[in-house]
Protein backbone atom coordinates (compact mmCIF):
# COMPACT_ATOMS: atom_id res chain seq x y z
CA UNK A 1 0.00 0.00 0.00
CA UNK A 2 1.45 3.33 -1.04
CA UNK A 3 1.45 6.05 1.54
CA UNK A 4 0.33 8.93 -0.73
CA UNK A 5 0.72 11.57 1.93
CA UNK A 6 4.31 10.58 2.47
CA UNK A 7 4.80 10.52 -1.27
CA UNK A 8 3.41 14.05 -1.64
CA UNK A 9 5.57 15.31 1.22
CA UNK A 10 8.71 13.75 -0.22
CA UNK A 11 11.90 15.66 0.61
CA UNK A 12 12.34 18.22 -2.15
CA UNK A 13 16.00 17.36 -2.43
CA UNK A 14 15.07 14.11 -4.18
CA UNK A 15 13.28 16.13 -6.84
CA UNK A 16 16.29 18.41 -7.12
CA UNK A 17 18.55 15.41 -7.53
CA UNK A 18 16.44 14.02 -10.36
CA UNK A 19 16.51 17.37 -12.15
CA UNK A 20 20.29 17.53 -11.73
CA UNK A 21 20.71 14.07 -13.24
CA UNK A 22 18.45 14.90 -16.18
CA UNK A 23 20.32 18.14 -16.82
CA UNK A 24 23.77 16.59 -16.71
CA UNK A 25 23.29 13.27 -18.55
CA UNK A 26 22.41 14.66 -22.05
CA UNK A 27 25.76 16.45 -22.14
CA UNK A 28 27.39 13.02 -22.30
CA UNK A 29 24.75 11.12 -24.29
CA UNK A 30 23.77 13.27 -27.25
CA UNK A 31 20.29 12.81 -28.71
CA UNK A 32 20.48 15.37 -31.55
CA UNK A 33 16.76 15.99 -31.68
CA UNK A 34 15.62 17.96 -34.73
CA UNK A 35 14.73 21.62 -34.20
CA UNK A 36 12.13 23.15 -36.53
CA UNK A 37 12.42 26.95 -36.73
CA UNK A 38 9.32 29.00 -35.96
CA UNK A 39 8.05 31.97 -37.98
CA UNK A 40 9.02 34.35 -35.16
CA UNK A 41 12.70 33.36 -35.42
CA UNK A 42 12.69 32.93 -39.18
CA UNK A 43 11.57 36.54 -39.67
CA UNK A 44 14.60 37.83 -37.74
CA UNK A 45 16.93 35.53 -39.66
CA UNK A 46 15.44 36.57 -43.02
CA UNK A 47 15.81 40.24 -42.20
CA UNK A 48 19.46 39.91 -41.18
CA UNK A 49 20.06 37.74 -44.23
CA UNK A 50 18.68 40.43 -46.52
CA UNK A 51 21.14 43.03 -45.22
CA UNK A 52 24.64 43.80 -46.44
CA UNK A 53 27.61 46.11 -45.89
CA UNK A 54 25.52 49.24 -46.60
CA UNK A 55 23.17 48.44 -43.73
CA UNK A 56 23.83 48.26 -40.01
CA UNK A 57 22.31 46.61 -36.99
CA UNK A 58 22.43 47.01 -33.22
CA UNK A 59 22.67 44.08 -30.87
CA UNK A 60 21.70 45.03 -27.34
CA UNK A 61 23.34 42.81 -24.73
CA UNK A 62 20.60 43.83 -22.34
CA UNK A 63 20.88 40.98 -19.85
CA UNK A 64 22.84 40.06 -16.77
CA UNK A 65 24.84 36.89 -16.12
CA UNK A 66 21.76 35.27 -14.58
CA UNK A 67 20.12 34.71 -17.96
CA UNK A 68 23.39 34.15 -19.80
CA UNK A 69 22.52 30.54 -20.62
CA UNK A 70 19.48 31.63 -22.62
CA UNK A 71 20.50 35.02 -23.99
CA UNK A 72 24.19 34.59 -24.79
CA UNK A 73 23.72 31.98 -27.57
CA UNK A 74 21.19 34.30 -29.24
CA UNK A 75 23.65 37.18 -29.27
CA UNK A 76 26.47 35.02 -30.55
CA UNK A 77 24.27 33.56 -33.31
CA UNK A 78 23.02 36.93 -34.57
CA UNK A 79 26.50 38.47 -34.34
CA UNK A 80 28.01 35.59 -36.29
CA UNK A 81 25.31 35.83 -38.96
CA UNK A 82 25.65 39.60 -39.36
CA UNK A 83 29.45 39.46 -39.57
CA UNK A 84 29.26 36.71 -42.16
CA UNK A 85 26.99 38.97 -44.24
CA UNK A 86 29.40 41.90 -43.63
CA UNK A 87 26.61 43.83 -41.92
CA UNK A 88 28.15 46.39 -39.52
CA UNK A 89 27.19 45.62 -35.93
CA UNK A 90 26.95 48.10 -33.04
CA UNK A 91 26.84 46.49 -29.61
CA UNK A 92 25.34 48.14 -26.56
CA UNK A 93 24.53 47.03 -23.01
CA UNK A 94 21.96 48.07 -20.44
CA UNK A 95 24.18 47.12 -17.50
CA UNK A 96 27.93 46.99 -16.81
CA UNK A 97 27.62 43.22 -16.47
CA UNK A 98 25.98 43.09 -19.90
CA UNK A 99 29.01 44.79 -21.40
CA UNK A 100 31.28 42.12 -19.96
CA UNK A 101 29.05 39.44 -21.43
CA UNK A 102 29.06 41.19 -24.79
CA UNK A 103 32.84 41.17 -24.74
CA UNK A 104 32.79 37.47 -23.91
CA UNK A 105 30.28 36.79 -26.68
CA UNK A 106 32.35 38.70 -29.21
CA UNK A 107 35.53 37.00 -28.01
CA UNK A 108 33.94 33.60 -28.71
CA UNK A 109 33.29 34.67 -32.30
CA UNK A 110 36.80 36.10 -32.71
CA UNK A 111 38.63 33.12 -31.23
CA UNK A 112 40.56 31.94 -34.28
CA UNK A 113 41.65 28.73 -32.58
CA UNK A 114 38.17 27.48 -33.37
CA UNK A 115 37.37 26.92 -37.06
CA UNK A 116 34.51 28.95 -38.51
CA UNK A 117 35.36 32.06 -36.52
CA UNK A 118 36.42 35.54 -37.61
CA UNK A 119 39.73 37.34 -37.33
CA UNK A 120 39.33 40.56 -35.37
CA UNK A 121 41.35 43.55 -36.51
CA UNK A 122 41.35 46.24 -33.79
CA UNK A 123 40.89 49.89 -34.67
CA UNK A 124 44.51 50.83 -33.97
CA UNK A 125 45.87 47.94 -36.02
CA UNK A 126 44.53 49.16 -39.35
CA UNK A 127 45.26 52.84 -38.67
CA UNK A 128 47.87 53.12 -41.49
CA UNK A 129 45.30 51.87 -43.98
CA UNK A 130 42.80 54.40 -42.71
CA UNK A 131 45.34 57.15 -43.08
CA UNK A 132 45.90 56.03 -46.67
CA UNK A 133 42.18 56.49 -47.39
CA UNK A 134 40.95 52.91 -47.27
CA UNK A 135 37.65 53.15 -45.48
CA UNK A 136 35.34 51.23 -47.81
CA UNK A 137 35.08 47.64 -46.73
CA UNK A 138 36.09 46.03 -50.03
CA UNK A 139 39.06 48.28 -50.71
CA UNK A 140 40.21 47.96 -47.10
CA UNK A 141 40.12 44.18 -47.25
CA UNK A 142 41.95 44.19 -50.60
CA UNK A 143 44.63 46.48 -49.24
CA UNK A 144 44.84 44.45 -46.03
CA UNK A 145 45.41 41.30 -48.03
CA UNK A 146 47.87 43.05 -50.32
CA UNK A 147 49.89 44.03 -47.26
CA UNK A 148 50.58 40.36 -46.69
CA UNK A 149 47.84 39.45 -44.24
CA UNK A 150 46.17 36.12 -44.77
CA UNK A 151 43.32 34.35 -43.05
CA UNK A 152 44.20 31.45 -40.78
CA UNK A 153 42.90 28.09 -41.86
CA UNK A 154 39.21 27.68 -41.15
CA UNK A 155 38.56 31.38 -40.48
CA UNK A 156 35.55 32.90 -42.22
CA UNK A 157 36.85 36.43 -42.69
CA UNK A 158 38.22 39.60 -41.17
CA UNK A 159 36.24 41.86 -38.89
CA UNK A 160 37.56 45.41 -38.94
CA UNK A 161 36.73 47.36 -35.84
CA UNK A 162 34.96 50.55 -36.84
CA UNK A 163 33.88 49.14 -40.20
CA UNK A 164 32.21 45.85 -39.30
CA UNK A 165 32.00 46.00 -35.55
CA UNK A 166 31.88 48.53 -32.74
CA UNK A 167 31.40 47.76 -29.07
CA UNK A 168 29.68 50.84 -27.68
CA UNK A 169 29.15 49.27 -24.31
CA UNK A 170 27.22 50.26 -21.24
CA UNK A 171 25.72 53.63 -20.38
CA UNK A 172 23.48 54.33 -17.40
CA UNK A 173 19.79 55.21 -17.84
CA UNK A 174 19.67 53.29 -21.04
CA UNK A 175 16.14 54.35 -21.97
CA UNK A 176 17.42 57.89 -22.31
CA UNK A 177 20.40 56.62 -24.28
CA UNK A 178 18.13 54.95 -26.86
CA UNK A 179 16.06 58.14 -26.95
CA UNK A 180 19.20 60.19 -27.63
CA UNK A 181 20.50 57.77 -30.26
CA UNK A 182 17.32 58.49 -32.22
CA UNK A 183 18.92 61.86 -32.98
CA UNK A 184 22.60 61.01 -32.84
CA UNK A 185 24.53 57.92 -31.81
CA UNK A 186 27.77 59.85 -31.36
CA UNK A 187 26.30 62.31 -28.85
CA UNK A 188 25.45 59.37 -26.58
CA UNK A 189 28.63 57.43 -27.29
CA UNK A 190 31.41 59.87 -28.23
CA UNK A 191 33.78 56.93 -27.89
CA UNK A 192 33.38 53.18 -27.97
CA UNK A 193 34.01 50.94 -24.95
CA UNK A 194 37.76 51.03 -25.65
CA UNK A 195 37.99 54.82 -25.93
CA UNK A 196 38.18 55.04 -29.72
CA UNK A 197 36.57 58.10 -31.27
CA UNK A 198 33.27 56.94 -32.70
CA UNK A 199 32.89 59.87 -35.09
CA UNK A 200 35.97 58.68 -36.95
CA UNK A 201 34.53 55.23 -37.54
CA UNK A 202 33.26 54.63 -41.07
CA UNK A 203 30.29 52.62 -39.82
CA UNK A 204 29.13 55.55 -37.72
CA UNK A 205 29.60 58.04 -40.52
CA UNK A 206 27.27 55.95 -42.65
CA UNK A 207 24.77 55.44 -39.83
CA UNK A 208 24.56 58.49 -37.62
CA UNK A 209 21.35 57.78 -35.76
CA UNK A 210 18.80 55.06 -35.23
CA UNK A 211 16.83 56.19 -38.28
CA UNK A 212 19.70 54.84 -40.36
CA UNK A 213 19.79 51.49 -38.57
CA UNK A 214 18.04 48.55 -40.16
CA UNK A 215 17.48 46.40 -37.11
CA UNK A 216 18.07 46.34 -33.37
CA UNK A 217 18.12 42.93 -31.75
CA UNK A 218 17.72 43.27 -28.01
CA UNK A 219 18.64 40.30 -25.84
CA UNK A 220 17.04 40.68 -22.48
CA UNK A 221 16.13 38.92 -19.28
CA UNK A 222 14.05 41.85 -18.06
CA UNK A 223 11.85 44.58 -19.51
CA UNK A 224 14.98 46.39 -20.68
CA UNK A 225 14.08 45.25 -24.19
CA UNK A 226 11.14 47.64 -24.10
CA UNK A 227 13.46 50.65 -24.22
CA UNK A 228 14.11 49.84 -27.86
CA UNK A 229 10.40 49.67 -28.69
CA UNK A 230 9.33 52.69 -26.66
CA UNK A 231 12.16 55.01 -27.67
CA UNK A 232 13.30 53.35 -30.90
CA UNK A 233 10.34 51.92 -32.77
CA UNK A 234 7.67 54.37 -31.71
CA UNK A 235 9.82 57.48 -32.03
CA UNK A 236 12.04 56.87 -35.05
CA UNK A 237 10.59 53.73 -36.63
CA UNK A 238 13.54 51.49 -35.71
CA UNK A 239 12.82 47.83 -36.57
CA UNK A 240 13.34 45.84 -33.37
CA UNK A 241 13.60 42.10 -32.73
CA UNK A 242 13.56 40.48 -29.30
CA UNK A 243 15.67 37.71 -27.86
CA UNK A 244 14.13 37.06 -24.48
CA UNK A 245 14.02 34.32 -21.88
CA UNK A 246 11.41 31.60 -22.35
CA UNK A 247 9.40 32.85 -19.37
CA UNK A 248 9.21 36.34 -20.83
CA UNK A 249 8.38 35.23 -24.35
CA UNK A 250 4.67 34.89 -23.64
CA UNK A 251 4.66 38.54 -22.65
CA UNK A 252 5.67 39.76 -26.07
CA UNK A 253 3.44 37.95 -28.55
CA UNK A 254 1.14 41.00 -28.72
CA UNK A 255 4.06 43.05 -30.03
CA UNK A 256 4.60 40.59 -32.87
CA UNK A 257 0.93 40.58 -33.78
CA UNK A 258 0.74 44.36 -33.79
CA UNK A 259 3.88 44.56 -35.95
CA UNK A 260 5.82 46.53 -33.34
CA UNK A 261 8.60 43.96 -33.35
CA UNK A 262 10.02 42.06 -36.29
CA UNK A 263 10.31 38.72 -34.54
CA UNK A 264 11.31 37.03 -31.34
CA UNK A 265 13.68 34.37 -30.10
CA UNK A 266 12.14 32.85 -27.01
CA UNK A 267 14.55 31.18 -24.64
CA UNK A 268 17.14 28.60 -25.55
CA UNK A 269 14.80 27.13 -28.13
CA UNK A 270 14.71 30.46 -30.00
CA UNK A 271 18.51 30.57 -30.02
CA UNK A 272 18.67 26.94 -31.22
CA UNK A 273 16.25 27.74 -34.05
CA UNK A 274 18.45 30.65 -35.13
CA UNK A 275 21.52 28.42 -35.04
CA UNK A 276 19.75 25.84 -37.21
CA UNK A 277 18.72 28.47 -39.78
CA UNK A 278 22.23 29.88 -39.79
CA UNK A 279 23.73 26.47 -40.30
CA UNK A 280 21.27 25.65 -43.09
CA UNK A 281 22.07 29.00 -44.72
CA UNK A 282 25.77 28.14 -44.78
CA UNK A 283 26.81 30.85 -42.34
CA UNK A 284 28.24 28.46 -39.78
CA UNK A 285 30.04 25.16 -39.95
CA UNK A 286 28.05 23.65 -37.08
CA UNK A 287 25.21 24.53 -34.78
CA UNK A 288 26.15 26.04 -31.44
CA UNK A 289 25.56 25.77 -27.72
CA UNK A 290 21.83 26.41 -27.83
CA UNK A 291 21.20 23.48 -30.14
CA UNK A 292 23.18 21.23 -27.81
CA UNK A 293 21.10 22.52 -24.91
CA UNK A 294 17.89 21.39 -26.56
CA UNK A 295 18.45 17.77 -25.48
CA UNK A 296 18.78 18.90 -21.88
CA UNK A 297 15.72 21.06 -22.09
CA UNK A 298 13.65 18.31 -23.71
CA UNK A 299 14.39 15.86 -20.93
CA UNK A 300 13.92 18.46 -18.20
CA UNK A 301 10.49 19.36 -19.57
CA UNK A 302 9.50 15.71 -19.74
CA UNK A 303 10.60 15.21 -16.13
CA UNK A 304 8.65 18.25 -14.93
CA UNK A 305 5.55 16.96 -16.76
CA UNK A 306 6.09 13.62 -15.02
CA UNK A 307 6.25 15.41 -11.67
CA UNK A 308 2.97 17.16 -12.43
CA UNK A 309 1.30 13.88 -13.38
CA UNK A 310 2.68 11.98 -10.39
CA UNK A 311 1.71 14.82 -8.07
CA UNK A 312 -1.83 14.69 -9.39
CA UNK A 313 -2.05 10.90 -9.15
CA UNK A 314 -0.98 11.05 -5.52
CA UNK A 315 -3.33 13.95 -4.88
CA UNK A 316 -6.39 12.10 -6.17
CA UNK A 317 -5.41 8.56 -5.12
CA UNK A 318 -4.78 9.77 -1.59
CA UNK A 319 -8.18 11.47 -1.52
CA UNK A 320 -6.65 14.89 -0.79
CA UNK A 321 -9.03 16.58 -3.21
CA UNK A 322 -11.84 15.95 -0.70
CA UNK A 323 -9.95 17.62 2.13
CA UNK A 324 -9.29 21.28 2.74
CA UNK A 325 -5.55 21.55 2.52
CA UNK A 326 -3.33 24.56 2.83
CA UNK A 327 -1.41 25.61 -0.22
CA UNK A 328 2.33 25.32 -0.56
CA UNK A 329 2.29 21.83 0.87
CA UNK A 330 2.05 23.03 4.42
Amino acid sequence: MINWEKFLNIDRRWLYLLIAVVVIVPFFIRMGLPVVPSDEVRSIYNLVDSLGPDNAIFIGWDFDPGTEAENQPMGVAVLRHALDRHVPVFITAVSPLGQGLAEQGAASVFDTRIPGNFVYVPWAEWEPFRAAGYVGRDSLESAWKAAGNSLPEGARGWVFEGVDFALLGYLPYFGLVVLGMGTSIATQYPTDAYGNNLREMPMLRAHKNLREIDLAVTLAGSTACMYWVVYGTSRVGLPVAFGVTAVMATDYYPYIQSGQIVGMMGGLRGAAEYEVLEHEGGHTETTGKAYRGMDVQSLAHILIILFVILGNIAYFAGGFHKKTALKSGR
Partner: peptide, 12 residues
Amino acid sequence: IAQAQEVGPQDA
Protein backbone atom coordinates in the same frame (compact mmCIF):
# COMPACT_ATOMS: atom_id res chain seq x y z
CA ILE B 1 29.21 51.27 -58.73
CA ALA B 2 32.37 49.94 -57.14
CA GLN B 3 33.78 53.44 -57.18
CA ALA B 4 30.62 54.95 -55.72
CA GLN B 5 30.72 52.40 -52.93
CA GLU B 6 34.37 53.03 -52.30
CA VAL B 7 33.69 56.74 -51.90
CA GLY B 8 31.68 55.42 -48.97
CA PRO B 9 30.47 57.19 -45.95
CA GLN B 10 33.58 59.23 -45.33
CA ASP B 11 33.20 61.12 -48.59
CA ALA B 12 29.45 61.31 -48.58
